[in-house]
Design a protein around this nucleic acid. Sequence first.
RNA 1: GGACCUGUGGCUCAAUUGGAUAGAGCACCUGACUACGGAUCAGGAGGUUAGGGGUUCGACUCCCUUCAGGUCCA
Length: 599
Amino acid sequence: MRLNYTPIMTLEYTIQLATQKAITALYKIDLPLEQIVLQETRKEFEGQITLVTFPVIRLSKKSPEQTGTELGEYLKKQVKEIASFNVIKGFLNLSINDTYWIKQLQQHILKSDYGQFKPNGQKVMVEYSSPNTNKPLHLGHVRNNLLGYAVAQILTAYGYEVIKVNLINDRGIHICKSMLAWTLFGNNETPESSGLKGDHLVGKYYVIFDKEYKKQIEELQNAGQTEEEAKKNAPLIRQAQELLLQWEAGDEQVITLWKKMNSWVYAGFDKTYKKLGVDFEKYYYESDTYLLGKDIIEEGLTKGVFFKKSDGSVWIDLTADGLDEKLVLRADGTSVYITQDLGTAQLKYNDYQMDQSIYVVGNEQDYHFKVLFLILKKLGKTWANGLYHLSYGMVDLPSGKMKSREGTVVDADDLIDEMITTACKRTEELGKIDGFSEEEKQELYRMIGLGALKYFLLKVEPKKRLLFDPNESIDFQGNTGPFIQYTYARINSILTKAHYVQHDANHSTSLTAVERDLLVTLIKYPTIIEASAKEHSPAHIANYIFELAKLYNKFYHEEPILKAEDTSVKQFRLHLSAGTASVIKKGMQLLGILVPNKM
RNA sequence: GGACCUGUGGCUCAAUUGGAUAGAGCACCUGACUACGGAUCAGGAGGUUAGGGGUUCGACUCCCUUCAGGUCCA
């Protein structure tokens, strides 16, 4: 049964309507529904749903306590789910009867598609990863990839049709640098001959270029040139620029080399993507799109959105919007970044006619996207309203920013391998996986290592910057991926032992406090998906699953499951365990994290 | 010069978008039916939410200002 709305909403709506009636009956006042504020009851108080009475007090002209009590009494009579209530300060805490919570288990939580919303008929594109083809992926890219993938998963669960897209920056001066260095110093080295992963091989020559380039600059400076002159005059940079011109002219040899080196990089990226578990429906290449956008410039000029300066360059004046004047086409008629992005945006829309489009790009480009979206709106593109920049903070090292050219990066492949190795060590120390084949072991280490890494990166609010200390390895205890995986494995073990089969999960006796807490938390899952989707933030999901796992462990310690004396209690607790396991698995899946049956 | 983002116990993060006594994890200290899986659980200690002012029944959250870190635009 797919959801139209979150399960708890039905009950909340009932309570809101009843409250509205109560206010009319008691105080002869009509209060709009949105002023009736419900929230989750804080753990230290009794009850599950809380009505904030302050907005009502202004009208009732009575004390918070009295208002709360009057409303509580009315609601208790009118809403059958409300078993009791208490009033503390201005807060009316409502206790919902156990029957209601137990019913949710059967009706929603244990359903195989729990958490999946009905298709909403909207298409959304998520563009992420967007690498350059001159170097391998690093930790920053990893954050980008995981975010993009998770957001895509979450939006799918929320009922969108999602198209995952990768726009590859495969042209420009940077790749020419690698090409040149390889030609000059490479001795025909290939991934096969060197055993290097393709992207690492090309990245190696990017670094060599930089090193040699710096040498030349120094020599020129010693010969009396200023730094600025030297940077411009160094033979290597001139050659690279020449190479770029040849590329643009379609020089056959250059194109062949370019294709060859890019194919190495793609083979390397594919491996990394596969390890990370991310994928794309469609690849766009900047070599195809970099000339786009010029017709949009024309369109803007005729519409009077852009203006031409005397030197022939084209601009847009955004000062009225609090921004600057922005160049959109150079005097010599060549594009700038934003020109092609305008064109690419139009191209993507023509291809898919999506309702929304999300760009997963670092926050250093906040200004760029603000301008891009604003221009498209000014051009009258109605679809521009669906554009969204999912801006995330940089991943910094204790030493500062990562810089590929200077070699101060945390390489994605290295990091992944390291995580897997650590997972292997930890697991072997604990020695709980007797009977695993070698293949199963490797599979498990990958699951745990990547689970730790992914959870570490996704539990933080995207827009916050992330500090990563390579010397302090990522934790496996506490608020971590492995903790959650462990909880899942533990539940799985119990269910297996009990030969659990899912069937009617009715239960008539009353609930213990932890059992009720667990149910209340479990039924919140769709609400979290909704918030997560609306805010484009996987962190909500991550924190929620952690809360759930923690709560289950508490339950596990407080209440006997297999040893429960009453068989119906035992059955019920097994159902509860199964529901928890299922939500953990689904939630982790939204983050792109797998959970093991045993670990 | 202008604009944007961030600032919460020693460290890493939360806080239902303006609600109750600001919650977790790591690290530290104490403990757990002689483990239904201890990668667990219970408890302790640790906070003027960067500083100051304002708005109101109520502010980590909104406004003003100062400071610190980061980023972008010309």
